[in-house]
């Protein structure tokens, strides 16, 4: 059950997207988010939807995986759509001749938001499926490097992120084990009132926190005993490089994004 979480999982195959420099992908991703929220007309949305399909296609990750990634967010999408549907002011939109409080504007906003969220999730899945967590944090560190001149701890931030990402599977496994052990002692996590269920979490959370702190302590000692002192003067085993492929990829994406903006301005 807990092991089925797919969001943020790397899918180790080979594709054009896998080969791109993580920095290129991160920048394209950020740009994509901005464009998704800037787009206004139906035509520009059509282009963005087409672009997202293109992303899925060239990532060569099975579509099934993207759908799996959408599942946990489905309720949020439905929830926001319903809120938008009823809470937007505007002209009344009768359903089968009855007025039930839905507005034309509300329906448009609801669809727009739902499409935006789905596109966002798919784009972020495309980023994480094609970029290993290590490459991702390396990319973020490199992108934030200029900020370290003004005292921004870019290396430390990247290190914290990669440690956090690395420990997610470990902690999931640990949680699974603790739940099983407490179940073996007759604990039940899925019966009773909400209050009772919240209380039932204590036997799971206390051991989980204790083990997380213990791991953090061990890791700190292990890093220090190998003379880790932060980012200064640290070299890498695998340098990330901006290549011709990146240039081609970045240009292609920029053309698509420019197209979307142009369409919005023209229409």
């Amino acid at each position: 059950m807990l092991k089925d979480i797919t969001l943020g999982q790397y899918f180790p195959i080979e594709s054009f997207l896998h080969k791109l420099d993580p920095r290129t992908k991160i920048l394209i991703f950020i740009l994509d988010i901005v464009i998704i929220f800037m787009a206004q007309t139906a035509v520009s949305y059509a282009v963005l939807i087409g672009f997202t399909f293109l992303l899925m296609l060239i990532s060569r990750v099975p579509v099934k995986m993207y759908i799996k990634g959408l599942k946990p967010i489905l309720y949020i999408i439905i929830f926001t759509a319903i809120l938008n549907l009823f809470l937007t002011d505007g002209r009344d939109l009768p359903v089968f001749g009855y007025s039930i409080g839905i507005t034309v504007e509300g329906a448009i906003v609801a669809v727009k938001m739902a499409v935006r969220l789905v596109l966002l999730i798919i784009a972020s899945s495309a980023l994480t499926y094609t970029t290993s967590p290590m490459a991702l944090t390396d990319g973020i560190e490199k992108l934030l490097k200029p900020l370290s001149r003004i005292g921004f701890p870019s290396h430390e931030l990247a290190m914290m992120m990669s440690i956090a990402i690395k420990f997610v599977p470990t902690l999931i496994e640990e949680t699974d084990k603790i739940i099983k052990a407490q179940k073996a002692r007759g604990a039940s996590f899925d019966t009773g009132s909400i209050f009772k269920r919240a209380k039932a979490l204590i036997p799971m959370l206390v051991p989980l926190f204790i083990s997380a702190f213990r791991r953090a302590d061990d890791l700190a000692i292990a890093m220090e005993s190998r003379c880790y002192t932060g980012g200064d003067g640290r070299t890498r085993l695998r340098e990330i490089k901006f290549t011709r492929t990146d240039l081609i990829g970045a240009l292609a994406f920029l053309v698509i994004f420019a197209g979307v903006i142009a369409i919005d301005i023209v229409f």
């Binding site: 084990k177 603790i178 179940k183 073996a184 204790i210």
Partner: peptide, 20 residues
């Protein structure tokens, strides 16, 4: 299932990690 869990007591590996 509860009765079964009571019939068969299972002590996991490193069981001290489950004390709370």
């Amino acid at each position: 299932l509860k009765r079964l869990r009571c019939d068969v007591g299972l002590v996991f590996q490193y069981p001290e990690h489950q004390l709370f």
